[in-house]
Design a protein around this nucleic acid. Structure first.
Length: 289
DNA sequence: CTTACGGCCTGGGTGC
DNA sequence: TGCACCCAGGCCGTAA
């Protein structure tokens, strides 16, 4: 599942080969994950790739229109969803199943998008749309200050798990890195943001950043489909301490790791290291009044 | 307004 | 061999 480290790894890989290339032609398969397929077919051929950026879990391929020099700028925004893969290869390379987008490049190579579930998204972002679309996103975990992080979290009474998954709070963090960060800081996923102690927030701040950076260094986590821009899997899954370890022993205390649905997502935690909050869902108290 | 939750999209894996 | 079911992330509608 591509989260920040995976998308960052893909972006770095693409950055090695794409900038300066021109898109010669576009071929599309299924298009139900593309906002406006006709616009892709119309706008991209002849455009030049200026840069590749990551913004949260979004990949932004910065483009300039065909006219030589000074063409209008726009972006191709790609979200990999759960199973999205974007790789460059030679055009004669075997086409993986569920490959739906082919960009022929002017160096004879091909950029392909493969996505079995098609939970990914692809759209053209006009220069003027950038701010409104990207401006709604939360803090970049690698750039935020501790003070920004603490004020953002402690202002909320939602569960810390929900806050971490909310891209309007932190951009780029998903299920894996949330559970890993909470286990390592011994914080239960159902704790409310506003109830976290200053020291807990400090540890969480440091931990999520350290984990994301280590995961980037290891090329991300490959749990099922994720591969980088060269088609290679990541290695951070070997460092996972709780994610997908239901029933296995906690690396710290040996207690069986539990799985519970929190914020609508599978959440893995150690019931001993990460004590549950007192009353999560206050029901109408039968006593009093 | 904030939060919680269920449903929807698709298809690979699992278990009977 | 078949097949029903679960589940993944993001988004949206609804309810409290």
């Amino acid at each position: 599942m591509p989260e920040l480290p995976e998308v960052e790894t893909v972006a770095r890989g693409l950055r090695m080969v794409l900038p300066g290339r021109r898109i010669v032609s576009v071929r599309l398969g299924k298009t139900d994950f593309i906002d406006d397929p006709a616009a892709i077919e119309r706008e991209l051929p002849g455009s030049r790739i200026a840069a590749v950026q990551r913004f949260g879990k979004f990949l932004l391929i910065e483009l300039e229109r065909g006219n030589n020099g000074g063409g209008a700028k726009f972006s191709l925004q790609v979200h990999l969803g759960m199973t999205g893969q974007i790789v460059t290869c030679r055009p004669e390379a075997r086409v993986a199943p569920h490959t739906h987008v082919f960009f022929a490049l002017d160096d004879g190579r091909e950029l392909r998008y493969t996505d079995a579930r098609r939970f990914g998204r692809m759209r053209i972002l006009a220069n003027g749309e950038r701010e409104s679309v990207l401006g709604e996103q939360g803090l970049d975990p690698l750039e935020m200050s501790e003070a920004e992080f603490r004020s953002k979290i402690s202002a909320r009474r939602a569960r810390i798990k929900a806050l971490f998954l909310d891209q309007h709070v932190l951009r780029g963090v998903g299920n894996i890195y949330t559970d890993e960060s909470l286990w390592r800081t011994r914080i239960h996923p159902k704790r409310l943001g506003a109830n976290l102690k200053k020291d807990e927030l400090r540890r969480l701040y440091r931990m999520v950043r350290a984990i994301l950076q280590e995961a980037i260094r290891l090329g991300g986590s490959t749990v099922s489909d994720y591969v980088d821009a060269e088609g290679e899997p990541g290695e951070f899954q070997l460092r996972h301490r709780v994610y997908m370890r239901e029933g296995k022993k906690c690396f710290r205390c040996g207690t069986a790791i539990r799985r519970a649905i929190v914020a609508g997502r599978s959440s893995y935690f150690c019931p001993r290291c990460q004590p549950a909050p007192r009353h999560t869902n206050r029901k109408k108290s039968s006593r009093s009044r």
